[in-house]
Structure formats: C-alpha cells, structure tokens
Amino acid sequence: MSNIVIIGATSAIAERAARRFAERGDALYLVARRADKLAPIAEDLKVRGASQAGTHTMDADDLDAHGAMLDAAVDALGVIDQVLVAYGTLPDQQACEADPASAVAAWHTNAVSPIALVTAIANRLEAQGHGLIAVIGSVAGDRGRASNYVYGSAKAGLAAFLDGLRHRLADTDIDILTIKPGLVDTPMTAEIDKGPLFADAERVGRDIVTAMDKRRAEIYTPGFWRLIMAIIRMVPRPVFHRTKL
C-alpha cells in the first residue's frame, strides 16, 4: 500500500490510474482546480477501496499555492510515497500563433507550473530519502510540428527538465517517470476527430500504473508511439516540411 498524491486528479487519464490505486487499497490525496468535479471522483475511489481519498482544490497556474498544497498532502498522508502530475491543457495552436500571451500562458500551465511543482516535490522526497514522481508529458514534445508546437515545446521543455532531475537523483532512492501518451480519447481531445491511433484513457491509465510499479524512467503509451515518434524524429527536414503534421 502506498500514499499517492495526484495533481490534476480530474483528468480522465489520472482518474483511470487512480481507480487501479484504489482497488489495491492505496491512500490517495487528490488535487484539482474544481471542487465540484473532484468530489464525485473522490467518492468513487473510496467505494473502490482507497483507504483514504482526501481532496484539495488548487489552480496549478498559481505557483504560490504549491507549497500549501504539499503541506496539506503531508498532513493527510503522513509520508508521500508517489506523486502523479497529470494536469495540462491543449491550447488552441492558432490562438498561440496570433497572440504571444496565449503562447506564454500555454507554457505556464504545461511547463513552468509543473517544473516549479516537481522541484518542490523532489526536494521534499529527497529529504525523506525515497519516493517516485511520475509526470504526464506528451509525444508532441518529441519534435516540434506546425500543428501544435507551442504545446509540444512546453512538453519538450518539461521532458528535458525531468531528464536532468532524474540524472541529479540517480544515486538516490527517488525515481522520476516521464509518461508520453499518444492520442488519447478524453475530454481534452473532444474537438478532434478520432482515428484508429486514438487510445482510450483506461489503457493509458493502466500503462501508467504498470510503469510506476516497475519504476520505469520513460514510457510511451500505447507503446507503438515509441516507434512512430522515432520515425518522425528521423524524417529529414526537407521531407518533413512537405508534410502536414
């Protein structure tokens, strides 16, 4: 049994992972922006077997709120064994191109905020000597593409940050997991037409829990995205520029 903090707990992927934690009796602390969305999820996880499912509302964009949230999580759980950082937004790429403020806001939510948060968490885990931080990135971070490079670049920055943090903590008992989901059928992608590459949140949630259990450093989910992104990274620039990706 582990004590797990989930930030962005109302995301469809996080909720699916949380159900697996609950079924094995883990103690959960759920953090999200909207209390009204959080309450039914916490209720459900308790019914499914979570030994506790405390909730905390926080806007992750407000960096000053991170410390108080972590204090509250420690109060609720005692020790934090694992953290799943699952929040993010899929910005409107056109709006980000037209308006620098939109691009910066997308970076703030998808890169600056998780970097600030994970820094604070890592320091606490380092002080206690053990732990795991799992962060949801994206395959979009593997190469900047015209269709969503603002989102992709934020996820790329986050991935490089996690690489460095993992390096820094390599000789400790603290593990860092970078999760790179492909296209997932969730409310975040509601506006996109679904093709055969879309995975359901249940599958992705299951892969995340397995990777956390195995203390992996990086996963693609579903796994075939590792191959797809390897190919996309290798496509020579002149050819790449003739595609619409």
Partner: peptide, 9 residues
C-alpha cells in the same frame, strides 16, 4: 460512458 462512478456501497 464517462458517467461510471460509484457513489456509495
């Protein structure tokens, strides 16, 4: 499909 939460047992 997404309204699949338990409320009490």
């Amino acid at each position: 499909a997404a309204l699949d939460r338990f409320i009490a047992f």
